[in-house]
């Protein structure tokens, strides 16, 4: 998203840029930090392909004694359930992100409009819930018993549709990138409020929308606790993250409590490729969302060029 400035600035590229040595320093700092960020993930990939014997012998290592795809074989053995949960995750993330971005934009826009008198009320309404909440059990009761969020897709989407944090972020984007004159001009042109928002404001604030969409998509993709709470019997609905989290939590529990559970559980524990499995699960979760990341980037970039043409 960032490089775009260079597109618009290209004509006077060197004129309006930091000096070459400074840029080299920037590169060095950013490169170092980026490596620092990505090496742990490579490490995870390596462990996921490490044989369990090697982990038992020498622990986690960048250079294992022997390689194995045992962990992936174990995960893929569950077959259909895995692909169904992949589908569920995509579905929940796509629908959830689309709806929540729309709701966030619709809520943040009036808050940004200084001529909307009730904006303080709506602002506080949202902000207050960032600080105070009813707690887990009461929320569970309301969702399940009052709103019927149980054993259905809605239970995995609705509880995360709205985030006051994202509203504030969106409002801040609107404040920093949409000039008041733009809206005034639109009003004078006789544009309706919804028309102004979607036809005039939205194109300008696309980087912000894409950022909020990214945050939402990540939140939906990583979510598993909702499935734990609300999907007990209709296991066809569980998302990937929960399926994998379940395996990991089972492996952890058995490792910690085998002395309580007798010979049978100890038996199960031995057959779990627990340590490489944990890492294989991480890889399976991270890869799709990491692949989606550049898509958001491009979206932001496109939004910016349109915005700058308009502005």
């Amino acid at each position: 998203m960032l490089p775009t400035p260079s597109v618009t600035r290209r004509p006077n590229l060197r004129l309006n840029a930091v000096s070459a040595p400074t840029e080299t320093v920037f590169h060095a700092v950013l490169l170092l930090f980026s490596l620092f960020c990505v090496v742990p993930f490579l490490f995870v990939v390596i462990i996921s392909f490490t044989s369990e014997e090697s982990i038992r012998q020498i622990g986690y290592s960048f250079v294992p004694q022997s390689w194995s795809t045992q962990a992936y074989a174990y995960v893929f053995r569950i077959g259909d359930a895995l692909w169904r949960s992949y589908f569920n995750s995509f579905f929940i993330t796509a629908v959830g992100t689309a709806l929540s971005v729309l709701m966030t934009l619709l809520y943040a826009y009036p808050l940004f409009r200084r001529d909307f008198r009730q904006r303080h009320f709506f602002n506080f309404l949202s902000f207050f819930t960032m600080i105070f909440g009813g707690g887990l059990v009461p929320t569970y009761i309301i969702c399940k018993n009052v709103l019927g969020l149980s054993e259905n897709y809605a239970a995995l989407i609705v509880p995360m549709l709205f985030s006051p944090f994202n509203v504030i972020i969106m409002r801040t984007f609107l404040q920093t990138s949409v000039p008041t004159e733009l809206i005034e001009a639109a009003t004078i042109d006789g544009s309706g409020e919804y028309h102004t928002l979607f036809r005039i404001v939205l194109p300008v604030v696309k980087p912000g929308v894409a950022t909020v969409a990214l945050l939402n998509a990540l939140a939906y993709w990583n979510e598993w606790f909702l499935a734990l709470l609300y999907i007990r019997q209709n296991t066809d609905l569980i998302p990937l993250q929960y399926l994998l989290m379940k395996m990991q939590r089972n492996a952890d529990f058995i490792a910690k409590n085998s002395h309580l559970l007798g010979a049978e559980a100890a038996n199960v524990a031995v057959n779990l490729p627990s340590q490489s499995l944990k890492m294989a699960l991480v890889v399976l979760i991270v890869v799709p969302i990491a692949c989606a990341y550049p898509f958001f980037q491009r979206f932001v970039v496109a939004g910016l060029t349109i915005g700058s043409v308009k502005g």
């Binding site: 960032l2 400035p5 618009t8 801040t172 990138s177 604030v205 950022t211 932001v300």
Partner: peptide, 8 residues
């Protein structure tokens, strides 16, 4: 994202 939103 905030920086890219700044008017050129």
């Amino acid at each position: 994202a905030a920086i890219t939103g700044i008017d050129r």
